[in-house]
């Protein structure tokens, strides 16, 4: 393979990898991580007691720190927004143990 073909293939690989990553990351945006901040509702699949934070708020110790929820058609949340009670879907297997350290 000559040098120009190698460069072309390299650019193609780089572009595809970057694009695919961006596509999968953006696609996942309706599925967001919410933190269980109110343990009055201890069940992980109960939408009550969850709040959205963009950073990593988990610390060791506890059963439910965060879980992923598909917020469907709801508007993207900002930090501190509670998880809507309806129109959201719990993502099975997405529970992260620990506790939310705000």
């Amino acid at each position: 393979m000559n040098k120009i073909k190698k460069v072309a293939l390299g650019i193609l690989m780089a572009g595809l990898a970057f694009g695919f990553s961006a596509f999968t990351t953006v696609k996942k945006r309706s599925v967001l991580i919410y933190y269980k901040v109110n343990m009055s509702y201890p069940n992980a699949n109960d939408p009550r007691g969850y709040e959205y934070y963009s950073g990593d708020m988990c610390a060791p110790g506890g059963n439910t720190c965060s879980a992923q929820w598909d917020i469907g058609t709801h508007l993207p949340p900002t930090d501190g927004d509670a998880l809507p009670i309806s129109g959201v879907t719990f993502q099975t297997g997405s529970v992260y143990s620990g506790h939310a350290d705000l």
């Binding site: 690989m13 780089a14 970057f18 950073g55």
Partner: peptide, 18 residues
């Protein structure tokens, strides 16, 4: 290596805050 680095770089840049 190109694929790995470009994939991870895009992923990090798009979720830079997190």
């Amino acid at each position: 290596f190109i694929v790995l680095f470009m994939y991870t770089a895009a992923s990090k840049l798009l979720t830079i805050k997190s």
